[in-house]
């Protein structure tokens, strides 16, 4: 499977990153190589193999439903570029 420039542009848009024309060509080539490498797996017969959804053989890691007080709002806002009246403030969305 080959990734073309159009596909790279689509992925860049989904990731909200700008890339140059030169990078588009580079990434198309690199991504194609990555896919071809992974495609090797298709040569194996995996009919009898359970799909793996998680890398560790652990299950049911739970927390009890007990409240822990949330940190002070101002501490959270220390990391926010902008805030106002107790809200995070963000640029217009649409």
């Amino acid at each position: 499977m080959a990734i073309d420039i159009k596909e790279v542009e689509h992925i860049a848009l989904l990731a909200r990153i700008n890339i140059s024309e030169k990078e588009k060509a580079e990434f198309a080539e690199q991504m194609t190589q990555i896919l071809q490498y992974v495609e090797k797996l298709n040569e194996l017969n995996t009919n009898e193999v359970e799909p793996l959804y998680h890398i560790l053989p652990i299950y049911n890691v739970f927390r009890e439903d007990n409240v822990v007080e949330s940190p002070d709002r101002d501490e959270l806002f220390a990391n926010a570029p902008q805030h106002e009246d107790g809200y995070y403030k963000v640029p217009r969305i649409l």
């Binding site: 106002e84 009246d85 809200y87 995070y88 403030k89 963000v90 640029p91 217009r92 969305i93 649409l94």
Partner: peptide, 9 residues
Amino acid sequence: ITTTAFSLV
């Protein structure tokens, strides 16, 4: 949402 100068979260 389309006319507001900014949004609060």
